[in-house]
Design a protein around this nucleic acid. Structure first.
Lengths: 232, 232
DNA sequence: TATTTTACTTTTATAATTCAACTAAAAGAA
DNA sequence: TTCTTTTAGTTGAATTATAAAAGTAAAATA
């Protein structure tokens, strides 16, 4: 273990963990990846993806490490959410946990790896009971995701290369758990000029067909004001 | 020290600290309370108020404990900002710090206690160089304070009992580092119906005098949408 | 050929925001 | 006494954003 000038305060050292709320979007549903916990206590119960923060490791590195191990992906979008530290939150001992949320494209090749770890995608609505305070963590991550989604069009991280406006709107419906007006949503999104229309159409959802769009390359400092002033 | 089922992971234990960005408002200026650090390394340099998170203590309790010791106040408004964990952020050793910001009414009796601890109020503009990554922490706290201020009228925590609209506007000018339009600001604030006009006037700032206002008792769930849609 | 379905557009009404000019009141100067 | 100055406070027109609803377009299918 590393020497440090603080070694005299050894008594204060704490267990620190990370927990990841992993969001994905598939079949018009916002989903969440949860795991069967592999250590006691609560072994076998549904849990968020977690892991220890090792000595001399940042919490973000720890989060990326556990995500990489599980999904094979190393370019995941991560955002820190909140730190939970109630000494009684984990019956196994007093553990401080730093929460992150991750956005993953479900169509990625991660699917197989994920299966090996006893993980499963659940929709927000049908989430099973999670261990400890993980329900609270999920709610907090959703809030943070909503905040982020109202400052930038989040689809870049969750949608495939090409997608229809209807599909993007459906993603927002899912995130905010409400129905956005199709006309107003389309008008707003297109006014932001971040999407580029392709000539190809998706003919699977309607007779008329819906144009595919893709994101333009990202601009620096895009959107400093909220996109949606009150709501769409 | 408490026994826990995790003791086998002893190697992973980490130093965890809290740092507090303490905001105050005085003489039309948003100010920040900084301290002369009392332990090595960087002893004697300007620093945020910090302290260890002890075994079996939550980070918020730790923050309240150090604030109480320093200011004598125990009803301070606290909000968690972010957790910093780069192993090299503190040259004294690898320390994870959980950041909070606090809002304090400078007219409180805390003034004397604060002096005893070698603390000093600085305006945001004239802040001295702070140790480690504390400059980054200050910037992050300001962002969080701005976010909070755009969801609720923050003055309740920083202004005296009675104050003029001009004074509240000046506080917002300070927080957002820009000039709000007097007419629009007044219209907006009064439309929120959180203030109550007193019959008394402040005659010190103008010939005409400006009415004093005070906050109405706080309503449950006040403001779920941002108060300022784009800007005032 | 008419109907159905869903993408997509347009219109109109309402509300929020900005900008700028206005009035009010009282102290102090002429 | 009257005029000027100063800052508080008000008002309204112009602009922009948002909401709601009804419209059109295109192609598969009955």
């Amino acid at each position: 273990m590393n020497k440090s000038i603080y070694d005299q305060y050894q008594e204060n050292k704490r267990f620190v963990a990370v927990d990841c709320v992993i969001f994905g979007y598939e079949e018009e549903q916002l989903k969440l990846l949860v795991f069967e916990r592999d250590i006691e206590p609560a072994k076998g119960e549904w849990s968020l993806l977690g892991g220890w923060v090792n000595a001399n490791e940042s919490t973000e590195s720890a989060a990326r490490r556990v995500l990489q191990k599980l999904t094979g992906l190393d370019d995941v979008y991560l955002e820190q959410v909140h730190t939970f530290s109630d000494p009684n939150r984990d019956p196994g001992g007093s553990v401080i946990t730093v929460e992150y949320y991750a956005l993953i494209k479900i169509d990625d090749k991660a699917a197989n790896l994920i299966k090996d770890y006893g993980a499963k995608w659940f929709t927000i609505a049908a989430l099973p009971k999670l261990i400890f305070d993980h329900d609270v963590l999920v709610e907090k991550a959703l809030e943070k995701l909503r905040l982020r989604s109202s400052y930038e069009i989040i689809g870049r991280k969750l949608l495939p290369e090409k997608f229809t406006i209807t599909r993007l709107r459906n993603l927002y419906d899912q995130i905010f758990q409400r129905q956005f007006d199709p006309g107003n949503f389309r008008k707003k999104i297109l006014s932001l000029k971040v999407l580029e229309r392709l000539e190809e159409k998706d003919m699977s959802e309607s007779r008329k067909g819906a144009f595919y769009f893709k994101f333009k390359p990202k601009q620096e400092g895009e959107f400093s004001d909220p996109i949606f002033k009150r709501s769409i």
